[in-house]
């Protein structure tokens, strides 16, 4: 069986861990790494070079990071098929209102929202605080 490496951003850690459990149950040798934010391409590339031949990579990241890791993986000798995209739970996220500091639960990262506290129209971003466990919502004028 192929060795599996799961790379996950902090915000998708839960999804990454779920994947790891499932893969383990089916008998794979699997490891999970949390990515630094922001991601350093050189570091990733170096780390990938040290993995056994034929390792399968599963990514739990946003689009920009995914692209960057794909490039790093290609440079490290991974083929396109060696890199898979994990299933991210597209449920709800917490959005920190940059105008009044209210954390809006149950939001999505794709759609703009109206802050339940101050009524500001907000654009959710990928700026994540593990202290607040929330993403920053920027004002839309």
């Amino acid at each position: 069986m192929r060795h599996i490496l799961i790379l996950t951003e902090v915000r998708f850690k839960k999804d990454g861990l779920k994947e790891k459990e499932l893969r383990k149950e089916s008998g794979s040798s699997v490891e999970l790494k949390l990515l630094d934010s922001p991601v350093d391409r050189k570091k990733i590339e170096q780390m990938l070079k040290d993995k056994p031949l034929g390792t399968m990579l599963i990514l739990y990241t946003g689009g920009a990071t995914r692209k960057l890791i794909r490039h790093a993986a290609n440079s490290a000798g991974f083929s396109h098929e060696d890199v898979r995209i994990g299933k991210i739970y597209t449920g709800t996220y917490r959005i920190f209102c940059s105008q009044c500091h209210r954390i809006n639960g149950k939001a999505s990262l794709e759609k703009s929202i109206i802050c339940i506290s101050c009524g500001q129209h907000l654009e959710p971003s990928d700026h994540y605080s593990s202290f607040h466990d929330a993403y920053l919502g920027y004002p839309i004028l």
Binding site: D36, P38, V39, R41, H101, Y128, S129, S130, F131, H132
Partner: peptide
């Protein structure tokens, strides 16, 4: 208020090309 408690690198996440 948003960045309190955050780590140096994450604080700079929005700056273009910072990594």
């Amino acid at each position: 208020a948003f960045v309190q408690g955050m780590e140096f690198k994450s604080i700079h996440n929005q700056v273009p090309g910072i990594q």
